[in-house]
Design a binder for these strands. Structure first.
Lengths: 177, 177
DNA sequence: CTCCTATTTCTGTCTATACTGAAATTACTG
DNA sequence: CAGTAATTTCAGTATAGACAGAAATAGGAG
């Protein structure tokens, strides 16, 4: 039941590998790839069979994907089982993932860097070098975070236009070196 | 020998955790953090002692960091041992890492998506839905890769100005929704 | 050429995480 | 309010990756 075409399998396996390289569990990434490709919502049993993983593993992974906000439960009339579907819009998908990674990883790093710089400043003149380094790092993260927040606020279509325009903006603004 | 200040330790430990969340070995990330903070090049023995890891582990991790292109060997007069130092400029650092991740992960994904879309097209009208999804994904990756390549070509200071300008560009270009 | 130091490679061990299957829970249906 | 289907939790197992220590290699210096 629900056998994969060679192309589907190829993509799902690759997506799983990509996941591991970016700190995402392989099965989680595979399930996401499957739901992304699949034309209609799937229930847990179906996912488990299609990917040959344990039913319980699917349960855990789905929760993870829901935690990231990229998979939602839907219900099918006359079927008591939960069905799951992935967010369809690729741009929206990556935006959600980036938001979440910023919230979970970048924001705490910013907080820590601020603490470190502050504590380092109290330590008198000792360790000026460390303070300089941490300040440079903090400055980088603050700039990038601020930039992302601004892009983030754009409606999707504006963001897409913005990206498609790419480096041409450079010339427009006379930023060339 | 070479004891860490509390601030240094805090940053190094955090950087290690960050590494794991982004698919980088904890020790590799810690060594990088150490070299980033340290005012002068360190030899392997010194690194091993400071972080309390095995000498061999340092050797492997340093090779990894060299593979990423963010750590270089330098030599100190009258000392036969290799000394290592991290790239200093934070902007340059992230640029190098992004370049490498693009080369290792994004470009192969692009290639695979192109293959999948092509193969899927041969399969006649069957599986139109999968083809649509893969095409949307490919389009996203191509757009982002193209965008990155353009930013990538800017000299660092232009890129920084560009990022610092951030969303204001939106208004300048009248992209507001 | 030999000794010595530095570095890398290799193999086995350990640990964190992923995963499974069973049991427990939840929530529907007749 | 049983009885059943679906889902989650849990506890044990398996596995991949990280790591240490030993052995091998490389590469001077005398």
């Amino acid at each position: 039941m629900a056998a994969l075409t060679p192309v589907q399998e190829k993509f799902i396996l690759h997506w799983g590998e990509m996941g591991t390289k970016w700190g995402v569990n392989r099965t989680v990434a595979q399930i996401h790839a499957l739901l992304f490709l699949w034309p209609k919502p799937m229930h847990a049993e179906e996912i488990a069979e299609t990917l040959s993983v344990a039913r319980s593993n699917v349960s855990t992974s789905i929760k993870e994907l829901q935690g990231w906000g990229i998979v939602k439960v839907v219900h099918v009339m006359g079927d008591r089982r939960d069905h799951f579907e992935s967010m369809k819009d690729v741009w929206e998908l990556f935006r959600v993932v980036l938001d979440e990674r910023k919230r979970r990883e970048i924001d705490p790093t910013l907080a820590l860097l601020r603490e470190c710089v502050a504590e380092s400043a109290q330590g008198k003149a000792e360790d000026t070098h460390t303070r300089e380094r941490l300040t440079a790092m903090l400055d980088f993260f603050e700039t990038m975070a601020g930039w992302y927040d601004q892009i983030r606020r754009m409606p999707t279509d504006a963001a897409i236009k913005f990206v498609r325009m790419g480096g041409r903006i450079q010339k427009l603004l006379g930023l060339a070196s």
